[in-house]
C-alpha cells in the first residue's frame, strides 16, 4: 500500500504545472525515502528530475517500492480540481491499475475523490554524473523567468556567459539583439532578492530559450533558482521545494543540453 498526504496540496499542483508541458508521460518511483520522477522531453534535449522527500509529507506510508506510471496531463487535469488550500492524499494499492486522489477542503466537510489510470511505461533511467561545475549562480527565480521570456522575443537561443562577478544573458535575431547583465549583490536583508555567483573558470555557452521558458514554470515553487554550468555539459536549473514553514521538501532539477557551433 502506498499513501501520501500533503496538507499543502498546492505544492503538488505547482510541481505538476512545472513539468506537464515538458513531459507527457512519466513514472513516479515511490519508496520509503519518498517520491521521485525522472523523464526526458519528447525530443530528448532536456531532462527533468523531481524529488519529494518522505518526511516532507504530513503522512507517508510505502510498504514496498512502487512505480506509478501515468499521463502527466491527466494528473494535472485532476489536480486542477483541488483547491489551493486543499489537503491532497495520494493512494495506490500494491497491485492496482489506478491511483486515487482525495482532496479535502480546510475547515469544511467537503471531500472529493478522483482516480487516475496507471500505465506501464518503458522508462529509461539515466545516470547523472555528480561533478563540480565551473559556475554556480543563484538568483531570484522571477528574474530568471523574466529574462528568458524577454530574450525569447529576440531570438531562439540565449548565450550565457560568466566572468568575474557577473553573469550575462544574450540573444540575437532578425530584429536585433538584447543582453541582460546581472552583478553579484549583497542584500543580506532579503536573501530571496540576492544574486550570488561562484566561478571556478569563465564560461560561455548557448541554450534553447524554448526549454528555459518551460523550466521557468517552476518559478512559483521557489523564490530563488540555481544555475550550474560547465563547458560542454548540460546546464542544471534547480528549484528547491520548501513548504510554508521553510522546511526542505525536495527539488525540481532540469538539465538542458547545450547548443554547439557546427
Amino acid at each position: 500500500m502506498f499513501e501520501a498526504k500533503l496538507i499543502q496540496g498546492a505544492i503538488l499542483k505547482k510541481i505538476l504545472d512545472a513539468i506537464k508541458d515538458l513531459v507527457n508521460e512519466a513514472s513516479w518511483d515511490c519508496s520509503s525515502q519518498g517520491m521521485s520522477l525522472q523523464a526526458m522531453d519528447t525530443s530528448h534535449v532536456s531532462l527533468v528530475a523531481v524529488q519529494m522527500k518522505a518526511d516532507g509529507f504530513d503522512k507517508y506510508r510505502c510498504d514496498r517500492s512502487v512505480t506509478l506510471g501515468m499521463n502527466l496531463s491527466s494528473l494535472s487535469k485532476i489536480l486542477k480540481c483541488a483547491g489551493n488550500d486543499d489537503t491532497i492524499t495520494l493512494k495506490a494499492p500494491d497491485d492496482g491499475d489506478k491511483i486515487t486522489l482525495v482532496f479535502e477542503a480546510k475547515n469544511e466537510s467537503e471531500t472529493s475523490e478522483y482516480e487516475v489510470k496507471l500505465m506501464n511505461l518503458d522508462s529509461e533511467y539515466l545516470g547523472i554524473p555528480d561533478t563540480p561545475y565551473s559556475v554556480n549562480v543563484k538568483m531570484p527565480s522571477h528574474k530568471f523567468q523574466r529574462i528568458c521570456r524577454d530574450l525569447q522575443q529576440i531570438g531562439d537561443a540565449v548565450t550565457i556567459s560568466c566572468a568575474k562577478d557577473s553573469i550575462r544573458f544574450a540573444a540575437k535575431g532578425d530584429l536585433g539583439s538584447g543582453t541582460v547583465n546581472l552583478c553579484q549583490t549583497a542584500s543580506a536583508d532579503k536573501p530571496e532578492d540576492s544574486v550570488s555567483i561562484s566561478m571556478q573558470e569563465p564560461i560561455i555557452q548557448s541554450f534553447a530559450l524554448k526549454y528555459l521558458n518551460h523550466f521557468a514554470k517552476a518559478t512559483p515553487l521557489s523564490p530563488q533558482v540555481s544555475l550550474s554550468l560547465s563547458p560542454d555539459v548540460p546546464l542544471v536549473v534547480e528549484y528547491s521545494i520548501t513548504d510554508d514553514d521553510g522546511s526542505d521538501f525536495g527539488y525540481i532539477r532540469y538539465y538542458l543540453a547545450p547548443k554547439i557551433d557546427e
Binding site: 526526458m40 530528448h44 529509461e124 539515466l126 545516470g127 547523472i128 537561443a157 548540460p234 547548443k259 554547439i260
Partner: peptide, 13 residues
C-alpha cells in the same frame, strides 16, 4: 548552431 541531445551526455544507469 546544432542542438545536442541529453542522451549524448547522460547514459542509462
Amino acid at each position: 548552431m546544432s542542438q545536442k541531445t541529453i542522451t549524448s551526455f547522460f547514459k542509462p544507469a
